[in-house]
């Protein structure tokens, strides 16, 4: 829905300094998301399997996977045979024709 209203961001863009921390957080999230989702393309995985597949520290994989789950990119599957680790899988996005 296009709007004729001037974006308020344009009015302040030159006045606010973007922090390095914020830029880094965006980069990290985007990289983590890409790697985790790519690994899950192969099929459902537990967190230790996912850490092995992505070669990332397991606590970071847990944090970002849970964040992806919160925002609907990933869903929870079954628990493993030892009742220890859950499997996580890609949530197929419904295409509403917008993106």
């Amino acid at each position: 829905m296009a709007s004729n209203k001037t974006k308020t961001l344009n009015l302040v863009k030159d006045k606010i300094q973007v922090s390095e921390q914020a830029k880094q957080r965006r980069k990290t999230y985007s990289a983590m998301k890409k790697q985790i989702l790519a690994a899950l393309e192969e099929g459902p995985m537990t967190l230790p399997e996912l850490a092995k597949a992505t070669q990332l520290p397991i606590n970071e994989v847990t944090y970002y996977l849970m964040t992806l789950r919160k925002y609907g990119d990933v869903k929870t599957g079954e628990i493993d045979d030892n009742d220890e680790f859950f499997y996580y899988e890609l949530k197929k996005q419904q295409n509403h024709g917008e993106d």
Binding site: T8, L9, I16, S19, K23
Partner: peptide, 23 residues
Amino acid sequence: DMDNCILCGACEKACLAEAIDFT
């Protein structure tokens, strides 16, 4: 959270209610 905003404007584009106000 302005400390962590990168001023990309994605929120303002997405907001149909036009509630985002950076000013």
